[in-house]
Write a protein that binds this DNA or RNA. Structure first.
Lengths: 314, 314
DNA sequence: GTAGCCACTGCTCAGATGAGCACAAAATCC
DNA sequence: GGATTTTGTGCTCATCTGAGCAGTGGCTAC
């Protein structure tokens, strides 16, 4: 805008008619006795010079900027970044994310979907906020983690979701980890377990958590033996998506521990069209990055600080 | 936006591509696998819901919103409202307005214009900030106000402007007011005065001030006799544009004082295509309103507080 | 003076866009 | 269960819009 105040005011006047009153350039040109090209050039200059400022604001507690950046950066189908206070405690954070995840699920689930649920604390929180779903069958993806004094188990969560949806609940009572591979194999043969796992190929959407293979950042790590903790670390395990182990680069890592688990495998997870993860806590950034790079994940619900941290890692 | 977080994020994503990256709706529709109609509707919803916020920002110290409102409201050709601090003193205010008026004049004057100058303190301030003008002849519109210890007289101002433009200066040495109508008539016959006044029909743009017919708000009032002050007030004089008296409604008021003045008449002023006034001081709002309603004024340079006050008078 | 350069204007034409419409799916009512 | 309304979708057609182009006038360098 290098001409003078009259030009600035004229441009502002035109910009108001165009952008705020929604009138056409031809119409405006007629009003001011200009050619539509002149109007177009003034509007261009207005945009260029910052006289007209267009901003995409966050809305409904969702940081749309971080959401879209995360989505674009990792090629996700859905991404919801919640604007939670940075100093929020985990409990409150889970509440926020749970509600957001519940809304997302309610939005993207169709009557034709089959929903898989892998246990995680944020998933438990989600269930509590879940609105009625359209008759979706629900499949349990992982065994019950023995977690003394903990909240709902996988089975409870799956039942609750099915209750909300009015669909069938494919549940099984089995522990997540057992002492040896043979026991695991035997358990998987059990009719109840086999029936649930036979549904896996039909699962179209799933929800799970992300753990960082370190103390306090993965329920699986915290409930594992020292030996397993060490072994997996030595194998380069960085993250787990509800029992599927990943390297920092996002490659699935085969482990002996996986053979001893009654849980969805990496291949089975990859076959699910959209797996939504609900991670929280800024320290999990590395794990989230691994999960997103793995290609296993199609959706994420998280909070601003973690999203920011993940994006800044690159 | 009544569907859910995925919709919000999708819409934000589309809005970013459309508004910030300047891509076409067709292009965006292809990228997301949507119809262009869907994209258009999402963008419409984004605008509607406030997710996309478009703002016309002030720039270069000009309050474009007030400027355009003033322009639209009173059908002005030009309007420049300067963002001056509300508590600015008159001297500093005149400086701001003078600079803005100088820029405006430099912008709108063409080599074919003939500029008329009526003395006012803000006009003096303008001259000090005036950039070179394109050879414009300059015509003095009013006699010299005897203003003891005051700054430049009308003559000085006209000479200065002509110096800046390189054009001819049509000046005359005569007082603004004389004791009786006969003297005024005689003075107007003088060759120098007559020559200057003969240029009036050719004046295409003029600059002047606005006074409110009250103490301290009009140099003309302040230099008038008690009798004149009272008489004009009784005649309903509210404002003067460099010696042309107006009622509150903006009607020219014929006065005996006018007959005793060596100055442009209301009819002569009406014949000038664009008269720009440079008023300041929030207390002059009534006078400015009268001036703008008179139809004599085509342009205004003022400050935000006064513009606001004038607009609020309705 | 005049040749060349630059900024600015409005034009053409193809592609983008909006208003209104028709149709289908979903929700609601009886 | 079926009729009716509501909602959402994509279409056609007329209009709007942008990219690129050619003409114009002002300016400078010789």
């Amino acid at each position: 805008m290098h001409t003078g105040p009259a030009q600035v005011v004229l441009t502002a006047s035109i910009a108001r008619r165009y952008y705020l009153e929604g009138r056409s350039k031809v119409d405006i040109a007629d009003e001011f006795g200009l050619s539509r090209f002149k109007v177009a050039r003034l509007l261009e200059a207005a945009l260029e010079s910052g006289l007209v400022h267009i901003e995409i604001r966050s809305e409904g507690g969702i940081d749309v900027d971080l959401s879209t950046r995360l989505q674009d950066r990792f090629g996700l189908q859905h991404s919801v970044v919640v604007e939670a206070p940075d100093d929020d405690d985990d409990e409150s954070l889970r509440g926020h994310l749970g509600r957001a995840a519940a809304h997302l699920l309610a939005e993207i689930l169709t009557p034709d979907d089959v929903l898989g649920i892998a246990w995680a604390r944020a998933v438990s929180a989600m269930v509590r906020a879940l609105p009625p779903l359209p008759g979706t069958p629900v499949v349990q993806l992982s065994g019950v983690l023995s977690f003394p004094g903990g909240p709902d188990t996988s089975v409870d969560v799956v039942r609750d979701v099915a209750g909300r949806s009015g669909g069938i609940a494919h549940v099984f009572y089995a522990p997540l980890t057992v002492p040896d591979a043979a026991t695991a194999r035997a358990l998987r043969q059990q009719p109840e377990v086999a029936r649930a796992f036979s549904q896996l190929p039909f699962v179209t959407k799933a929800v799970g958590g992300v753990g960082l293979w370190d103390a306090g950042l993965s329920t699986l790590y915290d409930t594992s033996s020292d030996h397993d903790r060490r072994t997996l670390r030595e194998l380069g395990v960085c993250a787990d998506i509800s029992g599927v182990f990943l390297s920092a680069a996002g490659e699935p890592v085969p482990t002996e521990l996986a053979d001893r688990m009654i849980s969805i495998s990496a291949e089975e997870m990859r076959a699910i069209p959209e797996v939504v993860v609900v991670p929280y806590g800024i320290r999990k950034a590395r794990a989230v990055r691994a999960a997103l790079r793995s290609g296993l994940v199609g959706g994420i619900v998280t909070h601003a600080a973690l999203a920011q941290a993940v994006l800044e890692m690159k």
